[in-house]
Design a protein around this nucleic acid. Structure first.
Length: 574
RNA sequence: GCGCCUGUAGCUCAGACGGAUAGAGCAACGGACUUCUAAUCCGUGGGUCGGGGGUUCGAAUCCCUCCAGGCGCGCCA
């Protein structure tokens, strides 16, 4: 059953180790900072106090593994040419234990850095050692974060748009967990208001029809077949005992029955999708506990509420909204916004330092007032992040599948899951940034070809597993000390790409963009497939075989951990 | 009308903090399985980054303006 809110930030799974970072980039930054310090101390360069060197990966590989723009950025303050500054830096730079095989000034004043193969090789054993934790980065430092997502009204089954929200929210939560945050997943149930009344009335009318009563079923009621099923449920439970009950009395009974049933169905759908919420928070509880009244009183005491035309208004314009908003109507009823204010106050009272809400893109007109509300409640505006999830265009062989809740002919999440499976659905939902519309082709999602990115990535993983099985049969060592045999450019490039994984995860968390993971995995799989097709792993030269298998093993770890973040399985064979 | 978002190859889209010659997948065309999984790989063509102006040593990225599209603008939920 649904639990009441109140559980605060009690999660204690602190599985994030400290040593979760591939060191190359960090080491480069250390060297650069030390060099700058050295130059400043000896009066060779003026360095602004909070100057931080930028290290990037050049597009052109002839420009080395990394490049820094610091000479370009220091040119202004020093009134000297960037190339001159770059030369000074390079002269003064101490090589940190043979990290670089080449350092040179190029172009307008870039310093290009090439990392020595020996330093790259160290990445592989480190990935092996970190294994399951590779990719975890502790940037959250135990910060309490709540992700509220799906939160569909219990008026019908989840459709595919909710599925996208579910996948995005769940993966976001996984990414935040992997980056040292304590995360709670929450579902907000709008169980108050006219939509719920409409639901109850819809089921009641169908119930009466089942009892043989001739009546018109209005357009304003929910049309889907599931309403008839709910009515049949009531019939089985209660026979005809509500046949002549006055509507005002019967509707709440039907509403509760319908909402409970639908919610149970929603939970099943989410379960099937591998999505689990820690907390199911009922809007009704905010009224029952007096939280809504309390929040309005708080805002009133702070001078953010005024009265006009018999209604109470929240002065959201004081916080950047374009107009003020009603919280209590002239008829005495509170608005949806009022309970939302109370809900967010409640979230902060539960101790969350960051609150993330995923909303359907059609709510975007609501963003400014909610942000205003958060500020009025005395919180920093960035303690609430509102992410908008755009529409999903459901296609079948490129042609749109009609979707309309009203007409009752929508494609449910469950139907999609049954057709294409959990892995494909999750992955495809995350192939685009959430605020851009997504085409979801059912036929493509089922295809077991290269066009389907899910299989592409999973196949790379299965392929490596298959390699390992064969290597074991032939008694080849999977680990050893022959990494220096990896001297092909594509081998070094693959190690380099592997080393970026933690940074991808980190950025994915920092910008709240799960699609970065799917992009990275697709790219990594592609690099590996290409490498595999050009070079034999298992072969007579056992030292070389061992080195290549170590590399493949590290690729497998990154693929597996990345898929794990997406909640997608990493099969051993396909 | 006001506000927010978007505009990158034929299509779908990546490109955090401004960096060197703008990328991927699909589609099109042409190739690679006696050898570790061809659910794979390789090659070819394809672009005034919506137009214009500005800031900068340097702009797809920042600013202004115009154009085109999407969404939002209730004492609804």
């Amino acid at each position: 059953m649904v639990r009441r809110g109140g559980a605060s930030c009690l999660f204690s799974s602190d599985r994030i180790g400290e040593k979760t970072w591939i060191m190359i980039k960090r080491r480069i930054l250390d060297i650069l900072n030390k060099t700058l310090e050295h130059c400043r101390d000896r009066g060779l360069l003026q360095v602004p106090v909070d100057f931080e060197p930028q290290v990037e990966v050049p597009k052109n590989e002839a420009h080395g593994d990394f490049a820094t723009t610091l000479a370009l950025n220091l040119a202004g303050p020093n009134r000297r040419s960037p190339r001159e500054i770059a030369s000074t830096l390079v002269e003064q730079m101490a090589d940190g234990g043979g990290l670089f095989s080449r350092v040179e000034v190029a172009g307008p004043g870039f310093v290009n850095l090439t990392v020595s193969p020996a330093a790259w090789y160290q990445v592989l054993p480190e990935i092996q050692a970190q294994d399951q934790t590779y990719g975890r980065v502790n940037i959250g430092k135990g910060r309490c974060v709540q992700v509220e997502f799906v939160s569909a009204n219990p008026t019908g089954p989840l459709h595919i748009g909710h599925g996208r929200g579910a996948a995005t929210g769940d993966v976001l939560a996984r990414i935040l967990e992997a980056t040292g945050h304590r995360v709670q997943r929450e579902y907000y149930i709008n169980d108050v208001g006219t939509q719920m009344d409409t639901l109850g009335r819809s089921v009641l009318l169908r119930y009466q029809q089942l009892l043989g009563r001739k009546l018109e079923f209005p357009d304003t009621c929910y049309q889907g077949d599931y309403i008839r099923d709910l009515a049949r449920g009531m019939l089985e439970l209660h026979g005809n005992s509500y046949r002549d009950t006055p509507e005002a009395e019967a509707v709440p009974v039907f509403t509760r029955h319908a909402a409970d049933r639908i919610l149970a169905g929603i939970r099943e759908d989410l379960d099937l999708f591998g999505v689990h919420h820690d907390e199911w928070f009922r809007e009704r509880s905010l009224y029952e506990s007096g939280a809504v009244d309390r929040t309005i009183a708080t805002l009133k005491a702070a001078g953010h509420i005024f009265e006009k035309d018999g209604a109470l208004w929240f002065r959201s314009t004081a916080f950047g909204d374009e107009k003020d908003r009603v919280v209590v109507r002239a008829n005495g009823l509170t608005t949806y916004f009022a309970s939302d204010l109370a809900y967010h106050q409640n979230k902060f009272e539960r101790g969350f330092e960051l609150v993330i809400n995923l909303w359907g893109a059609d709510h975007h007109g609501y963003v400014a007032r909610m942000q205003a509300g958060v500020m009025a409640l005395g919180r920093k505006p960035d303690s609430l992040k509102l992410l908008l999830v755009q529409l999903v265009n459901l296609l079948r062989k490129g042609k749109p599948v009609a979707m309309s809740t009203r007409a009752g002919e929508f494609e449910t999440l469950r139907a999609v899951l049954e057709e294409v499976g959990r892995d494909a659905a999750r992955f495809i939902f995350l192939t685009r940034r959430s605020d851009s519309p997504l085409d979801f082709d059912l036929e493509l999602a089922k295809e077991k070809t290269a066009e389907n990115p899910v299989y592409y990535v999973q196949y790379a993983h299965a392929r490596i597993c298959s390699l390992m099985r064969l290597a074991e049969e032939r008694h080849l060592p999977l680990e050893g000390s022959h990494l220096s045999r990896l001297n092909l450019p594509e081998e070094l490039a693959l190690i380099k790409e592997l080393s970026f994984f933690p940074e991808v995860v980190e950025n994915s968390a920092r910008f709240l963009e799960p699609h970065r993971i799917t992009y990275y995995l697709t790219q990594l799989a592609s690099t590996f497939h290409s490498y595999y097709n050009h070079h034999r792993m298992i072969q007579d030269d056992t030292d070389l075989a061992q080195a290549r298998l170590s590399l493949a093993g590290a690729v497998r770890i990154a693929l597996r951990n990345g898929l794990e973040l997406l909640g997608v399985s990493a099969p051993d064979k396909m």
